[in-house]
């Protein structure tokens, strides 16, 4: 049990997927302008990470390892994750339109996001069990959501700040991201 908590905390804070592993930077800078969409994005990524971890764990253990073709994991994982997200999108579009509108454009956007692929590959490299994979995916997703929400909160305030003209927009956002990254390095060494 304590092992799972360690995995959860380490994936969420210490080895944060965005600020420490530098994965998923595209949504981190692209969708972090307002709090609400960035939170939805974080939720969608968490969900897809969980589903993708489950699917890739099964594929890895029952197909790749069994037929001795582990070296093909990247292409197989991309294929599986992409089609899985498509199936989910199609399914909720047909059954629950409110949920579909809530996910909106985010679900297709994260189909081939490197953060999602990264978590599944980390799970594989660390030889996690199924439960540990799911916990690690949950931790990564929560860490992703946390960083997205923090960044969006700061950027909402930054829009009102009187930054020099040349620094407005992307430059000041990147500097904010750097400071945020430094702050998260403070977690390193806790576990």
């Amino acid at each position: 049990m304590s092992e799972l908590i360690v995995i959860l905390l380490s994936m969420a804070l210490i080895n944060n997927i965005i600020l420490v592993r530098y994965l998923g930077l595209c949504p981190f800078l692209g969708v972090s302008r307002e709090l609400k969409p960035s939170f939805s994005m974080g939720m969608a990524v968490t969900f897809v990470m969980l589903v993708a971890s489950l699917a890739t764990w099964v594929i890895n253990h029952y197909v790749l390892i069994r037929f001795n073709i582990e070296y093909m994991y990247i292409i197989v994982f991309i294929l599986v994750i992409a089609s899985l997200v498509q199936v989910i999108e199609l399914f909720i579009k047909k059954t629950n339109f409110a949920l579909y509108s809530a996910f909106g454009i985010y679900l297709p956007l994260i189909t081939t996001n490197c953060a999602v692929l990264g978590v599944t590959i980390i799970n594989m490299m660390e030889n996690y069990t199924l439960l540990a994979s799911l916990v690690s995916a949950l931790g990564s997703g929560l860490g992703f959501t946390l960083v997205m929400a923090v960044m969006a909160g700061i950027r909402e305030k930054l829009d009102l700040a009187d930054a020099p003209k040349s620094m407005r927009g992307a430059p000041v956002a990147l500097i904010t991201a750097t400071l945020l990254g430094l702050a998260f390095f403070g977690f390193s060494g806790i576990v």
């Binding site: 594929i59 197909v63 790749l64 037929f67 001795n68 073709i69 093909m72 292409i75 197989v76 294929l79 599986v80």
Partner: peptide, 10 residues
């Protein structure tokens, strides 16, 4: 086998 497995997954 790897071709067959990949084709099967796809």
């Amino acid at each position: 086998t790897h071709i067959a497995a990949l084709a099967g997954i796809a």
